[in-house]
Nucleic acid binder design. Structure first.
Lengths: 188, 188
DNA sequence: CACACTCATGTCAGCGTCTGACATCACTAC
DNA sequence: GTAGTGATGTCAGACGCTGACATGAGTGTG
């Protein structure tokens, strides 16, 4: 805490999004982002572990949301409902900034190395949800299976929600998709 | 097709596995791998897109296995059973070389960037299975949801199978895990 | 047999990511 | 004021990865 200009981290994030959108992720160098934010390349790497990470700032909050939803779910909830609450809460958070989410996703979809990072974040989310579910007394294996299925639904629903021309309710899409998967797994 | 020594690609793969195991993935440079295989660094990059890819040679065959299983499943199979057949076939393939799979997984577990690549391969598998399932008449959304859940189970089951001291039947672990998820999703 | 062709590989130069070590400079606390 | 703390700059360098071009063995064709 001290007294420079408006915070460097925010300026770097802003600069990165703008430049990535303008010329594409690969065509933008870290040095350019740093210059555009008025700092040096070295400073960029003090705020972000790597060039990709700047696009994944929100993931910690997303996980927090999901975990808290599990913790505050009604006593006696079934494991799958704990997971459902988690991913719906995460969906509600993303929904607050749909256009931002859409633009960001377009960048990710255009670059495999960004997709890898995104998948890693989703795996982290899944593991966090599994832990939270297990903390509520569900056996670890069951918690892992349920969390895996839930985050998988979360991702598929995200793609549908983002691709849709009209804005639908993302948590509702998640809920519907979860229900559809339930029916699929019950059949046969 | 021509006539050098035993193929360079194989020697590179072998050298990479050995060196990664000896000193760890990050502590090994591509140049060292190349030297150890009797070629230059440039040649390494002619066979593998990057330093990580050398650890993911088998993924194409794995996907082939899964897709073929979907294609050859009995007519009228439920979507979830198509997916089940796919991941059990993939499991059967990995089972042929359990110790290799275990050693390889130890490397991956020790390095986040390798985990990212693995997640990407799993996503590729999931998408391929979804396509194959959709090609059998299942609506795309349902195919995606089922494939996502199935590959998620496949991964969780893999971790259990690898962690276990005694060797169990991997396809059976997959089948059991799938069944357990079904029950979890039916509850409540 | 000479020639052209292909294809794996080597050589070389260079860009960009990321890191460690150390200096600087403002602001804070005592 | 003097020492400490924390954000930043500067510098040097390792390493991953790529494009361009050269080489040299093997293959075919006239």
């Amino acid at each position: 805490m001290s007294r420079w200009e408006p915070d460097a981290r925010g300026r770097l994030t802003q600069a990165a999004f703008t430049l990535y959108a303008e010329r594409g992720y690969e065509q933008t160098t870290v040095t350019e982002i740093a210059e555009s934010a008025g700092v040096t390349e070295r400073t960029f790497f003090r705020y972000f572990a790597d060039k990709r990470e700047v696009l994944f700032n929100g993931s910690a909050e997303l996980i927090d949301m999901a975990v808290r939803a599990v913790e505050s779910a009604p006593a006696g909830s079934a494991p799958i409902d704990l997971v459902g609450a988690a991913v719906e809460a995460a969906a509600a958070l993303l929904q607050l900034r749909r256009e931002h989410a859409r633009a960001r996703q377009a960048l990710i979809d255009a670059n495999p190395s960004l997709q890898e990072r995104e998948l890693f974040k989703m795996a982290t989310l899944s593991a966090a949800v599994a832990d939270a579910v297990a903390a509520r007394g569900v056996p670890p294996v069951a918690a892992t299976l349920a969390a895996g299925a839930g985050t998988s639904v979360f991702s598929a629903a995200f793609a549908r929600w983002i691709a849709d021309d009209e804005t639908r309710d993302y948590p509702a899409v998640v809920r519907d998709s979860m229900q559809e998967l339930r029916q699929l797994m019950a059949a046969s």
